[in-house]
Amino acid sequence: MIEAWELRKEYGGFVAVEGSSFSVDRGEVFGIIGPNGAGKTTTLKMLAGLLEPTAGEAEVAGYDVSETEMRHQLGFLPEESPLYEEMTPKTYLDFFADLYDVDSAVARERREETLDDLDLEHRNRQLGDMSKGMKRKVAIARSLINDPEVLIYDEPASGLDPLTTNYIIEFTERLAEEGKTIIFSAHNLFHVESICDRVAIMNEGEIVARGDLDRLQDEYGETTYHVYTTVEIPESVRENGRYRTVVESMEAVDERREQAQAAGGEVVDIRTEQSSLEEVFLNVAQSGRPGQ
């Protein structure tokens, strides 16, 4: 549903995104993560047709992103939801439904349905008088008003309280289950882990790592081995009557086993632990551009 080939964006002399390629299948949830200024938003805006790529191409739902027709298939949620404060949720959504050529009866039904789903009250209050969370919900409702196949969400839960954040993440998950293709950016990795099928990690304008979460963990994460012995060996910590040593490779495990045997003890347990996505992300980000 989403294809990007070697997307590149320059502002003046500054390269914001460099050689970004990826593809997202129908029904998939794809996360882009990275620190601030990594080029996530620029990438998403190029996909949404808001920014013209300096080089490279992208397709969404089978249309080139420069085509107007593509926009009918797209729901875009920008990082900040700039709303027209003087409008009410009703007039606001109806206005956009009209721009997306949605039949007014269908639009009314869809509007009420989505606002119900989102638990939004005060539908006739001016948007300017609403809380941040409510505004965000209206913005999400707007992104769904044309029943798009593809959703591009830029930091959908940024700056909201934990309750609303959870609510919005769950809502997004439900949308994915309904078969929407979703691409979104985040720097809160907890959300990514919970709903993403695949992620790409960006740093300084480039995708530095990508794949499903397992593969990324294998590649960039560290597996640590906790070796439990009956006797004390160097660097070991006493724990529940046993001694625990943490090492990072199988060779080291073998070494500890020999040490334990030499001291007259034995290895009673070996446990492996994988690093979280957060640690993977930190590893990748700190090392800058690891070889691919």
């Binding site: 926009r71 875009f76 700039p82 721009l99 997306y100």
Partner: peptide
């Protein structure tokens, strides 16, 4: 504010 109009068809 105008971003959303720009992304509409």
């Amino acid at each position: 504010r105008g971003e959303l109009l720009l992304v509409s068809p």
